[in-house]
Design a protein around this nucleic acid. Structure first.
Lengths: 230, 230
DNA sequence: GCAACCAGCAATTTCGAAATCTCCTTGACA
DNA sequence: TGTCAAGGAGATTTCGAAATTGCTGGTTGC
C-alpha cells in the first residue's frame, strides 16, 4: 500500500489492530470501541476510524452503522466454506507456482522451511499457545510456497483467504497438539517442490488445510460457539 | 455491509464514487482530491477520506501516503493477470453452481438472461458507450450464474474480481463492437445451465472472459497507455 | 549555464468538540 | 404482573480548523 519511509498514523494503528486480531488478543465478535482504542494507541478517533474501515474491507472486522465495529465473528459454516475455498484456490496457485517457479522459488521455499524447522512451535511461557516466531515462520513458509505463482491477482486472493483462516488456526493447533505431524506435512510439501511433483504438492497442501479444519470441527461445539458472541 | 435503513453519509459517498469509477466518469490514474470531492458530494473531508479508504481496500483506488488517492491505474500486465485469475476462479465457482444449484438457480439465470436480452446494449445518446441499463443487467446475469455456488467466500472472491474487470470492460466492448456475438455467448451459457452441462458452461464462460480481453489487447497500445497516467 | 538551496504554497493528515443516533433504564398504565 | 413509552446515558458520526508534509518557483553560488 505504501512504500514511503513515513507510515501514517492510521497505518500504524491498522497494523497494530490487525496483529491483535490475528494473534487472538482481540476475540472474534468483540466490540471495538473508538474511545478505548483511541486512548490505547494514542491517536484520535478519526485515525482509529480509518484503521477500522480498512480492517472491515479486509474481512477481519465488520461494521454495523450507528453501532460501531466488531472483530469478525467465527462460525462453523464459515470455517467450512473458508476451508473449501482455500483448498481450491491455494492448490490452484500452487500448481501455477510449480509451472512457472524456477530455482529462486525453490530456494526460497527451502529457506523458509529451514527457518520454520528451527522455530519452537509453542510459546515458552505457555505450552498451549503458539509462539509468535513460529506463527510468523509458518506464514512465511506458506507464502513462499505460493509466491512462485507469477500472477499477483491470484496471489493476493490466496493471501487474503489465508489471513482469514489465521483467526481459526490460532485455536486449532493447540487443540490438535500431539495428534498430528505438522512438521511432516511441511516436509512433504518441500519434497514435492524439490521433486517438481505438482500433483503431490497440491494433494499434500489440500490435505494440510483440510486437516487443520478437521481438528477444530471435531472439538465440542462450545469451543467455537462461546467466542462467536462476546 | 449494512442492512439498516439509515445509510451513513460515508456509505453514500462511497457508493457514488464507486459508481463514478466503474462507469468511467473518473479515469484510471486520475487524482481524487479531497477538497473537490468534499464540495461535490456535500460532505466533510473526514467522510470523503473514509469513502476513499474503502475504495482503496476494494482495489478500485490506491493510496499514496502524503500524496492522496487516485483511481487505480490500468495496465496490460494487470489485465492479463486479472483475466487469467477470472478464468480460473469463475469457472471454479460456476462448476460448484452446477453441482449444487437447483431449480431456483436455473430460474434466476433464466430470468436474468431474459432481462439482459431486453436491455439495449448501447446508450441511446452515444452509440459508442454501453447503456447503464445493459451494464447492470449484464452484471446481474453473471452474478446469477455464479450465485448457484453455495460458498459465500468463493462467491465474494469471484465478485471482487469481476468488479476490478469492470474497469477494463468499459473500454473493451465499444472497441469490439460488431466483431463478436456477445448475446450468443450469453445464450450458450444459459443453454448449458438448462442442460446441466457443467463442462460446456465452464468452457463457454472461460472463452467469454478471454474474448473480452483479447479484443482490448488487440487495440493499439495507446488505448490503455494514455489513461494510465492522468 | 547549470546545479543546489531556500522560501512559499497547496494538499494531505490529524485533532477535538458538537451533533446525531441507539440502547438501556425508569416509570406509568392496562 | 406484563407491556409500552419517555427520558437519559453512552456511543458513533460528522464537522471545520490547526499541524505537518511534499511540491513548486525563484534565487544564489560555482
Amino acid at each position: 500500500m505504501s512504500r514511503s519511509g513515513a507510515p501514517t498514523r492510521a497505518e500504524r494503528v491498522h497494523a497494530a489492530l490487525r496483529a491483535d486480531i490475528l494473534a487472538g488478543r482481540l476475540r472474534p465478535g468483540a466490540r471495538l470501541p473508538f474511545a478505548e482504542l483511541s486512548a490505547q494507541h494514542g491517536a484520535s478517533m478519526g485515525v482509529v476510524r480509518e484503521a477500522l474501515t480498512r480492517l472491515a474491507a479486509e474481512g477481519l472486522a465488520e461494521s454495523q452503522p450507528q453501532y460501531g465495529f466488531r472483530v469478525v465473528p467465527v462460525s462453523v459454516d464459515d470455517l467450512r466454506h473458508l476451508t473449501e475455498a482455500r483448498c481450491a484456490i491455494e492448490t490452484l496457485v500452487l500448481r501455477q507456482a510449480f509451472a512457472h517457479g524456477g530455482v529462486e522459488w525453490e530456494s526460497n521455499v527451502l529457506a523458509a522451511h529451514h527457518r520454520l524447522g528451527r522455530s519452537p512451535q509453542m510459546a515458552a511461557d505457555d505450552p498451549d499457545r503458539l509462539s509468535d516466531e513460529w506463527v510468523s515462520a509458518h506464514s512465511a513458509f506458506h507464502l513462499a510456497l505460493l509466491s512462485g505463482c507469477p500472477n499477483p491477482r491470484l496471489l493476493a486472493v490466496a493471501a487474503s483467504l489465508r489471513d482469514s483462516a489465521e483467526l481459526y488456526r490460532r485455536w486449532s493447533v493447540p487443540l490438535g497438539h500431539g495428534h498430528r505431524d505438522v512438521a511432516g506435512e511441511h516436509r512433504a510439501m518441500l519434497e514435492a517442490v524439490l521433486a517438481h511433483d505438482a500433483d503431490a504438492g497440491a494433494a499434500v497442501l489440500a490435505e494440510h488445510i483440510q486437516h487443520t479444519t478437521d481438528v477444530l470441527l471435531e472439538q465440542p461445539a462450545t469451543e467455537l460457539g462461546d467466542t462467536a458472541r462476546g
